[in-house]
Simulated assay, not measured.
Amino acid sequence: MQPNVSLAPMPQHQGRGRCQMNKAPLVFLGVLFTLSLSWWGMVYSPAIQLGGETPDKGDGTALKPRVGLARQGEQVYRENGCYYCHTRTATGGQFGYKLQITRLDLNGTITDSAIGGADKMLPVIKQAYRFKAVAKAADALKTELGKTEGKSDAAIKAAKEAKATAVKEVKSAELNLEKNLKALGISGVSLDKDLSLECGLPAEKNATQKKLVANAQVTITSGIKQWSDIEAKVKKLKAAKARFRLQPVASDWPDRQNLVAMRQSVSRDFLFDAHAMPGVMRIGPDLSNVGGRLIGADNDAYAHIYNPQSTGKSSHMPPYRYLFHRKKITEDEALPTTAITVTIKGDKRSVEPGYAVTPTAKARALLAFLKSLRTDSALPEAPIVEQAAATSAGTREK
Score class of each variant (00 low, 15 high):
1 M>D: 09
2 Q>R: 14
7 L>H: 08
7 L>Q: 08
11 P>G: 13
19 C>R: 14
22 N>D: 05
23 K>H: 08
23 K>P: 00
24 A>T: 13
32 L>Q: 07
38 S>K: 08
39 W>V: 15
41 G>Y: 08
47 A>K: 08
47 A>R: 09
49 Q>K: 14
51 G>M: 04
53 E>F: 03
54 T>L: 07
54 T>S: 09
60 G>S: 08
61 T>M: 04
63 L>C: 02
63 L>N: 01
65 P>Q: 07
80 N>C: 00
83 Y>H: 14
86 H>F: 05
88 R>E: 05
94 Q>M: 04
97 Y>T: 04
98 K>L: 12
99 L>W: 03
103 R>V: 02
104 L>T: 10
105 D>H: 01
107 N>I: 07
108 G>C: 04
113 S>I: 09
117 G>V: 06
123 P>A: 01
127 Q>V: 02
128 A>N: 05
134 V>E: 07
136 K>L: 13
138 A>E: 10
138 A>M: 01
144 E>L: 01
147 K>V: 02
150 G>F: 02
154 A>L: 07
155 A>V: 05
156 I>K: 13
158 A>S: 14
158 A>G: 01
158 A>L: 11
160 K>E: 15
162 A>Y: 06
166 A>L: 02
169 E>V: 12
173 A>V: 13
173 A>P: 06
176 N>D: 15
177 L>Q: 14
177 L>M: 11
179 K>Q: 15
184 L>H: 06
189 V>I: 04
192 D>Y: 00
193 K>C: 00
199 C>T: 09
201 L>Y: 05
201 L>A: 07
205 K>P: 04
207 A>S: 13
208 T>W: 00
209 Q>G: 03
211 K>P: 05
214 A>Q: 12
217 Q>C: 03
218 V>F: 00
219 T>R: 13
220 I>G: 11
221 T>A: 06
223 G>N: 07
226 Q>L: 11
229 D>P: 02
229 D>F: 00
232 A>E: 13
235 K>G: 02
236 K>Q: 14
247 Q>H: 06
248 P>H: 04
253 W>E: 11
255 D>V: 12
257 Q>Y: 01
258 N>Q: 15
260 V>A: 15
261 A>F: 07
262 M>Q: 14
262 M>D: 10
263 R>C: 01
268 R>C: 03
269 D>M: 08
270 F>S: 07
276 A>T: 11
276 A>V: 12
281 M>D: 10
284 G>W: 06
285 P>T: 11
290 V>W: 10
291 G>Q: 02
294 L>P: 03
295 I>P: 01
300 D>P: 00
300 D>N: 12
306 Y>V: 12
312 G>S: 02
313 K>Y: 07
314 S>T: 15
318 P>S: 08
322 Y>F: 12
327 K>V: 15
333 E>Q: 11
339 A>G: 08
346 G>L: 03
346 G>H: 04
347 D>Y: 10
348 K>N: 08
349 R>G: 02
350 S>M: 05
350 S>N: 06
360 T>I: 01
361 A>F: 09
373 L>Q: 13
375 T>K: 05
389 A>N: 13
389 A>M: 13
392 S>G: 15
392 S>N: 14
392 S>R: 12
393 A>N: 12
395 T>M: 12
395 T>N: 12
398 K>H: 11
398 K>L: 09
